[in-house]
């Protein structure tokens, strides 16, 4: 707590959080992101809860914006998501993990492969919602009873405008298996050349 720098309320050399807006092309970070204590674990329980909720919604909108389905903790803490370089503040690995754990309890994230993993699914849409989205698209484009390859579904130009374009293959499997369970789709074929037929 002690320091020998000269603290003064009116000292002019202190930099305030950046006030210039981010350029249009980058993700528009919320106001909280420019608030220095946002990156420090708050000791008061209620404040902490508010903080976790703010982080949760930031991560969800960040991942939605960048179409991130799987968030690697190691990579993320080096990225601007958890590291505000202008402010010189960053979220520690432990704190970031706690946020994701908080999101898991809210049903908005899930560890990929085991509890101790450091890669997380971020459900800005959960598999159920993805399944619904894909089924709706098939419906809208009248492609029921036609066979599509999984590659077509997520990588072809036809789905460019869809949120599930470029979707993580593992997640696609999850979503499709939900549709299969409902009897709305059938997946067949080998590893690399899978196809799907919707009913």
């Amino acid at each position: 707590m002690t320091s020998n720098h000269d603290p003064s309320i009116l000292s002019p050399d202190r930099t305030l959080p950046p006030s210039n807006p981010p350029s249009q092309k980058t993700f528009p970070f919320p106001r909280d992101y420019h608030f220095p204590p946002y990156f420090t674990r708050q000791p008061t329980l209620t404040t902490r809860h508010a903080q976790l909720q703010k982080w949760s919604s930031l991560i969800l909108s960040y991942c939605r914006y960048h179409k991130i389905w799987k968030l690697s903790l190691a990579d993320a803490i080096e990225s601007d998501l958890f590291w505000n370089k202008k402010l010189g503040k960053r979220l520690s690995r432990e704190d970031a993990r706690e946020v994701l754990e908080f999101m898991r309890k809210e049903g908005r994230s899930e560890a990929v492969g085991g509890k101790d993993g450091s890669v997380f699914w971020v459900w800005w849409r959960d598999p159920e919602e993805w399944a619904g989205l894909i089924a709706d698209w098939v419906d809208d484009t009248a492609q029921k009873n036609t066979v599509l390859t999984l590659y077509e579904l997520t990588e072809s130009e036809a789905t460019l405008s869809q949120d599930f374009h470029g979707m993580d293959p593992d997640l696609l499997q999850k979503a499709l298996s939900i549709l299969v369970k409902r009897g709305k789709a059938q997946v067949f074929g080998q590893e690399d050349q899978q196809g799907v037929k919707f009913f």
Partner: peptide
């Protein structure tokens, strides 16, 4: 709110979150 990532802990007013934005 406390910010511990500085020489001396800084205590921020949450109202400032909105003003900055």
């Amino acid at each position: 709110w406390v910010d511990k990532q500085c020489d001396e802990y800084e205590y921020w007013s949450p109202g400032f979150m909105l003003e900055v934005q």
